[in-house]
Design a protein around this nucleic acid. Structure first.
Lengths: 338, 338
DNA sequence: TTGTAAGCGTTATCAC
DNA sequence: GTGATAACGCTTACAA
């Protein structure tokens, strides 16, 4: 509740001086600086976000959002919430420009970053795990951009990461399968790509929990490129090659294709656990073909990423954490979207 | 991005006049009013929340929070998040005064409302379902208070309700038990109180789903007053009177007491599904005694209630919905808080 | 090195 | 009925 003005009066200086001290703009006599810093601390000064936001309007901050979202339904929810947030924030003078790409081509992502870079002061990106992209991101940070990685993190100088707890997702799926599938468990795994760190981590978490199950058998791991047609083929392959299979863990997208494959074989004894409650998955849950789906809070991911960006660009405050990791929730037909 | 000032210039009037029109304060010539309203609409005017917040500081809005939270661990999470939100909002000049009570005594709740009433301009309350309380709430609304009911709704003139989807919680628990418990299912139910509408609704949802299960047997429903000791006794009673029991659904608090009762009887064939991931429940989940817990988003409930209040009192904007209903998530030992 | 003044958008007060 | 003005807290450009 204490303001810059009050601090200025108490210290016998002007608001400008206090502002220079608190925002470390220099050009203040050391003894005055000390006095002001101490006074601010003693009075527990917290800048008023409304005042900051109002003054920040003159800056018209622009945010770039670059997501490899095309053809990935999971991002529909993320982006829907980001758009709503952007709409809210627009009245504070923050503008968002949107870019999307299909697939994980590092060259293309670098190209788009270059195209965006001189237009923006913040970047929200779902980065491809590639040295060229990482370099590019580090360059952005060095040049003063505020960078948030979303849903996929890379070893870089990014300011903040927002995504889900991948190892936990795998562990949860494994434990759930142990609960709902008759032993002995003979499972197949479909994953998007071995090059996706998150998918790898989910698989590791899955195996970690299954280890303790002596009669567990991992029959095979197939890649799907997060594509339902490929998932369909991969699931058929698993079922044909391993008729004893009784469970399939779909590590990322592809639940629908998997369910269709099961449907086609008329096998009712195979339990599917998938990721993400996207419409096609929900459909298959209602039909009983997918028993459960893990929810990685897409809306919260989108909201948090935009909020972190807004707080920095408009309110001038850094995020409390350098990584916001969302929990995995278990959903079944009864508690999935109505 | 259009401001009052711009509208004023375009309409050839002063900012004051535009303000009077947009905030319906009257004293404006009908033709001017019409012109201004149309211009605002045409330009898609949206008030700037930062400006509003800044101006609202002079009002020093005070919010009363009254929750029957004592001894109910579920509310620890709700209140923790509400406190954090209150802290954030305090820099906008919004103050919160906190009251709690133990149990559901309507008289006492009315007394506390009376005590708060002339100090506050908004009330967040977990109302007792009693005509006296409802009258009191309606009186508050009539007198201009903004009222949000939290976690429990009552038939009143409250502006907004924030709580969980009770029927869905029951349905989800039932479907989950069907998945993880060997048939035939012989279940007992422990619920807080038959007078709690939410608990009743959960039980109904539970039975609704179980109906379709021909070999299902509901062995008994016992009340616990959300108390672990009473839950312990009630669970022992169920087990003693119905040795064939193989599942217990704990409709609200009491999961810990139930698990202790199971532990005491050395029965390993009874599956417990409980509500809320409070510390004692988590402990019992880690030990494997409680198989799953339903999570009703306490943090989101707290955050949303405070946000709705803030948006109204500080930004002058009504909530988009009159009820915010949280989903029930399924959690097991692997995805509960680390 | 420091102070002053204007401005961000909204609201409230007061004078006409 | 209406308009001018000051105020909310903060930033910034400029003057001293």
């Amino acid at each position: 509740m204490v303001t810059i003005k009050q601090i200025a009066e108490l210290c016998g200086v002007s608001r400008g001086t206090v502002d220079r001290v608190l925002n470390k703009r220099g050009n203040v006599k050391p003894e005055k600086e000390k006095l002001i810093v101490e006074m601010a601390k003693k009075l527990n000064y917290r800048p008023n976000p409304a005042g900051k936001a109002l003054a920040a309007r003159k800056k018209h901050p622009v945010v770039g959002v670059l997501i490899a979202s095309e053809g990935v339904q999971f991002f529909d929810d993320v982006l829907a919430t980001m758009r709503r947030a952007a709409e809210r924030f627009s009245s504070y003078g923050m503008e968002v420009i949107w870019r999307s790409m299909k697939g994980f081509d590092a060259e293309e992502q670098c190209r788009i970053i270059d195209e965006l870079k001189d237009k923006i002061s913040g970047l929200i990106i779902n980065p491809v795990n590639d040295p060229k992209v990482i370099d590019k991101i580090n360059k952005c940070v060095d040049d003063g951009l505020f960078v948030v990685t979303l849903n996929n993190d890379v070893e870089s100088h990014r300011h903040c990461y927002v995504g889900s707890d991948y190892p936990q997702g795998g562990r949860t799926a494994a434990a759930l399968l142990k609960m709902i599938c008759p032993a002995p468990l003979k499972a197949g795994v479909l994953l998007g790509s071995r090059n996706m760190l998150g998918h790898q981590q989910r698989l590791q978490g899955f195996q970690e929990v299954m280890q303790s199950q002596p009669d567990f058998a991992l029959l095979g791991v197939e890649e799907t490129a997060d594509d339902d047609m490929q998932a369909y083929e991969a699931a058929r392959k698993l079922i044909t090659e391993h008729p004893e299979i009784n469970a399939i863990f779909v590590v990322s997208s592809g639940g629908y294709g998997t369910a269709r494959a099961i449907q086609a074989t008329d096998r009712t004894d195979i339990t599917i656990v998938a990721f993400d409650t996207i419409p096609s998955t929900i459909d298959m849950m209602k039909k009983g073909l997918i028993k459960a789906a893990l929810y990685q809070h897409p809306h919260q991911q989108g909201r948090r990423a935009m909020q972190v960006m807004f707080d920095y660009l408009v309110n001038g405050s850094l995020p409390e954490k350098t990584a916001y990791i969302m929990r995995n929730e278990i959903r079944i037909a009864e508690n999935v979207a109505e």
